[in-house]
Computed example of a mutant assay.
Amino acid sequence: MEAQPRKGYILLADISGYTAFMANSELAHAPLVLGHIIQFLTKELTPTLQLAEVEGDALFLYATEEAITRGELLMELVESTYINFRINKRTMSHNITCPCRACQEVSRLDLKFVIHYGEFVLQKIAGKVKPIGSSVNLAHRLLKNTVSEATGWNGYVLFSNICIDKMGISPENIYHGSESYKHFGSINITAVNFDEKYLEYTSNSRDYIAENESDVNVEYTFTAPPPIIWDWLCDPDKRNRWYAGNKANWVIKDRPGGRTGTESQNHCTNSNFIEHVLDWRPFHYYTVCNKRGWINAKITGELDEVNGGTHFQWRLRLLGKLPRQLLRLISKFIAHKVLEMNASLGNLELLSKENFMKYKDQERDTHEVEHRNLAQV
C-alpha cells in the first residue's frame, strides 16, 4: 500500500548563532542551554503543529492543510513563539549566575523560521513519522538564505511566496527577494522582521479590562490548548458556529495591516455591530470594542494554559454616561440573555474539542498506517 500524498505546511525553527555559540562555549553547559531552548520551542509550537524531528539546533515540524484552515493562525503561532523566546531568553540571561562563556553568551542567540507549503507523504523513518518529498527538501534548502545579508535581520520568518499566497495574508514591513538552489531554480520569498515585532509588542501600551474593572466576567475551561481556542474565538467563520441561537454572522470588514491586529474591524450583519480591535496579543488576550448606536461594549478575552487545556475569561465593560450600576445591569443582560455566553462557550468547547480530537485521531491513524506499510516492505 502506497502512502497517500498530502498538502500542508512545512516549518523549520532554527536557533540562529548556535554554531558560533558552541565554538566559543564550554561543552558542559552549552548542551543544557540548547536542551532548554528546544524544550521551550517544542512546547510553543505543538500540538498546533506536529513535531517530525529535532535536527540539532533546529526543529522540523509540519501540519496538513486540514489542520491549519486559517492562514493567520500560522503567522500568529511563529510570531508568538518568537516573542516568548525573546522574553524567555531575557529571563534566562537575567537569572544566570554561572560565569562560564556558555551561560554568559545566551543573549546572543536568536531564532528564525522557514515556512513552505507543498505536497508531501508521511513515512515512518527510524521510528518517527515525518514528511518526505521535494517540498520538504526545498524547505530545508531555504534555511540557507540571504535574508540577513540583505536586511541585517537575525530574527525573522521566511515564507516561500507559494506559502504566503496560500495563507492569504499580506503583512506590512516585509522584505521581498528570491533564493536560487540547484534542482529548484529561483524561489520567490517574503520575510518579516521579528525583532521589530518583539519591540512593538514590549513597548506598546496595553488596552485591557482587568477582572475588577469588568461589569461581567464569564469563565470557561476548554480541553484544547490556547492556539486552538484562539483560532475558534477569532476566526469569523468559526465564531458564527458556536454562538448560541445562531445569532452571529461575523464577516471581515477591514484589515489595514494585511492581517488581523490593532485597528482591524469585523462586522456582524445580523446585529449590525462593528467590532474594532483595540489590542491583539495572540494566544494571550485580545480587546475589542463592539459599537452600534449608543451601545459601546468593550470586551477582553484572556487565555491561560491549564494542564494542556485553556482557561478562558470573557470580560465585558459597557462604556457610556449612564450610572455605572445601570451599565452593569445592562452588561449582564447582554452577556447572559442576548449573547448567552455560558451556552455559547459550551458550544465552543464541543466544537473545538471534536475538531481537535478528530485531528489527533487522524494523526494517530496515519502513524499506524505508515507503521503497517513499513512492516509490509
Rank of each mutant, 00 (worst) to 15 (best):
I299K: 02
T64L: 03
R328I: 00
K144H: 13
D207I: 15
E368I: 09
L350W: 14
K321Y: 08
G257V: 05
N193V: 08
L59C: 03
R108K: 12
L77K: 00
I169Y: 05
K128T: 12
K337A: 09
S203A: 14
A102T: 10
L158R: 02
P225N: 03
K291F: 08
I330A: 00
L158K: 02
E340S: 06
L49V: 08
E200P: 09
F356H: 07
G261Y: 06
A335T: 03
K298M: 12
K238H: 04
Y359K: 13
K130T: 06
H336M: 07
M341L: 12
I228Y: 14
L339A: 07
L351D: 03
R90H: 12
F283C: 04
L233Y: 08
S134Q: 13
W230Q: 01
A63F: 00
K130A: 13
T310W: 04
L348V: 00
I115V: 01
A248F: 11
N154L: 10
G245V: 09
E55F: 14
A63Q: 00
Q104I: 08
E55L: 14
H36L: 10
H267R: 15
A67G: 04
N137T: 02
S148Y: 02
D361P: 15
G301K: 10
V251A: 15
E349T: 07
G155S: 05
R315H: 06
A13Q: 05
E211N: 05
T223Q: 10
S80T: 14
L278F: 06
E53H: 13
Y181P: 03
C268K: 13
R141G: 00
W250E: 12
F194P: 06
C289A: 15
T91M: 08
Q39E: 15
G346R: 11
I169T: 03
R108V: 12
I164V: 13
D207Y: 12
K360H: 11
V114I: 02
K358H: 13
I125C: 10
K166P: 07
K291G: 09
F312G: 09
I132W: 07
V147C: 00
R372H: 13
I15N: 11
Y285M: 02
L77Y: 00
A20I: 15
N246C: 06
P282E: 01
S170P: 09
L339T: 09
R101H: 14
E213Y: 01
T91C: 07
S344M: 02
T269F: 11
Y208C: 02
L49G: 11
T69S: 08
I162V: 14
D207M: 14
